[in-house]
């Protein structure tokens, strides 16, 4: 499972070493056709720079928004995305799948 995630975790560690607030988002479950498998990661820092992905680009915007909130308040978040989601029109998955993404601050 490691490989592309190593680069992402290393970037997260490097950002922390620079004293930046950092959050990690991880795909923890998928249903139907989802573009990234369970374990896929995205790391972001307080200014909104990010590396990695949790979908084909469909929900990254919303995940980054929640990541910035997690950096601010330190609370972990479990996000669900899919066509049946209330926010489907804005951030639904075009593929028709569903995913859950766990977002946490790097302490």
């Amino acid at each position: 499972m490691m490989g592309d995630n190593e680069e992402i975790l290393q970037q997260a560690a490097d950002w922390r070493a620079l004293g930046k607030g950092v959050a990690l988002a991880t795909v923890v479950s998928t249903w139907g056709s989802s573009p990234r498998p369970v374990g896929a990661k995205l790391a972001l820092e307080q200014e909104g720079a990010f590396i990695g992905s949790v979908s084909g680009g469909c929900v990254e915007g919303a995940v980054i928004e929640e990541g910035l909130k997690a950096i601010a308040d330190g609370k972990p978040r479990l996000l669900s995305f899919g066509v049946s989601n209330d926010r489907a029109w804005e951030v639904g998955l075009a593929c028709g799948g569903k995913i859950q993404v766990f977002v946490e601050r790097v302490e």
């Binding site: 766990f102 946490e104 302490e107």
Partner: peptide, 29 residues
């Protein structure tokens, strides 16, 4: 995630040792 766990995961991966992180998705423990 604690920065220490992140560094442990990176080290384990580099040195070829399997490792696991278990996360409670409700409370983040």
């Amino acid at each position: 995630m604690k920065l220490g766990f992140l560094q442990k995961a990176l080290a384990a991966s580099r040195e070829g040792r399997p490792a696991v992180l278990a996360t409670n998705l409700t409370n983040g423990l």
